[in-house]
Nucleic acid binder design. Structure first.
Lengths: 128, 128
DNA sequence: TGCCTATATTCCTGCATAGGTATATAGATC
DNA sequence: GATCTATATACCTATGCAGGAATATAGGCA
C-alpha cells in the first residue's frame, strides 16, 4: 500500500475520527452519525472515500451496512493507527467519541431503538 | 498542533521525503535538489508549504537557506516522524535518499563544489 | 555598481476534495 | 406491491493544491 494514501485518508478530521473508532470496533453508518454528530451525507461520503482507498471493508446485516477495518492489513496501516491512538489520547473530542461508543455498544444496530428515535425526530419536525 | 495539519504535510510523497531527510539532518535547498532529483520550483514550493504549516524552520548561511525541524516540536510530530521512519525502512526510494544524504554530507553547502557543478551544467547546456 | 548565485514568488491550468441539497437505491416489512 | 428504513449517489460550488514556466529577490563578490 502506498504510504501517502494512508496519510491522505488521515488528513481529514472526520475520517480520522472514523478510523479511530473502527480501530476499536466495527460499526454501521448510523453509529457514526450518533457518535460523531455529523450529517448522514458527510459521513457516507467519507466512508465512500475510505472504501475507495481500500482502508475499510463493508458487509450488510439486514438494513445496516457494517464498516470495519480489513482483518489482514498492511503493517504501515497498523503502525499509523497505533500512532494515532497515542497522539489523540488526551484529545477531548476523540476521548468523547470512545465514551459514546461504549454507551452505544448495547444498542448498536438494534432496530427498535433506532426506529423509536426516528419516530421521535418525525414528531419533532411535525411540531416545528 | 492540529493533528490533521501533520497528516496534510505527510500526504505528498515529495514532502514525505523531505521530512524523512530532515529527521536526519538540516539541509539547504540545493541538497534537496541533489538528493531528490526534483526541479527547484517543486522543492521550493513544498518547503514553503512546510514552512507555512510551521513544520520546519529556516536560517540563512551566506547564500544558502538551511531548513531544519524545529528543536522543540510537539510530541505528535515526533511520534509520526518515528512511525514514518519505521514504515519506509524497506522502501528503496527512501533508502536511496539516505544513501545520497550520507554521500553529500561532506560537500554540503561547499560553494566551490556547487559552483563547479553549475559551471558543468552551463557547459552541457551550451553544447546542447 | 553590476553580475553571479540560491531561493522564492507569481501566474497559469488541471485536478481532487469538502460539504450541502436533493434524489436514488436496496433490502425489510406489511 | 407499497411503504418504510438505512445508505449511497448525483449535482453543485468553493477551495486548495500540484506542477510547470517565467520572473523576482536577496545576499555575496568582483
Amino acid at each position: 500500500m502506498e504510504l501517502t494514501r494512508i496519510y491522505q485518508c488521515f488528513c481529514d478530521r472526520t475520517r480520522l475520527r472514523i478510523l479511530h473508532l473502527l480501530a476499536k470496533s466495527p460499526l454501521c453508518v448510523c453509529d457514526f452519525q450518533e457518535i460523531l454528530g455529523e450529517p448522514q451525507v458527510k459521513i457516507s461520503k467519507h466512508l465512500a472515500y475510505l472504501r475507495r482507498a481500500r482502508m475499510v471493508n463493508t458487509t450488510r446485516q439486514k438494513n445496516w451496512i457494517i464498516y470495519s477495518l480489513p482483518q489482514r492489513r498492511p503493517a504501515e496501516l497498523d503502525s499509523n493507527l497505533k500512532c494515532l491512538q497515542d497522539c489523540v489520547q488526551t484529545d477531548p473530542i476523540f476521548k468523547r467519541d470512545y465514551q459514546r461508543l461504549a454507551k452505544l455498544k448495547k444498542s448498536c444496530c438494534e432496530p427498535r431503538q433506532l426506529f423509536r428515535e426516528a419516530a421521535d425526530r418525525r414528531r419533532i419536525n411535525a411540531n416545528a
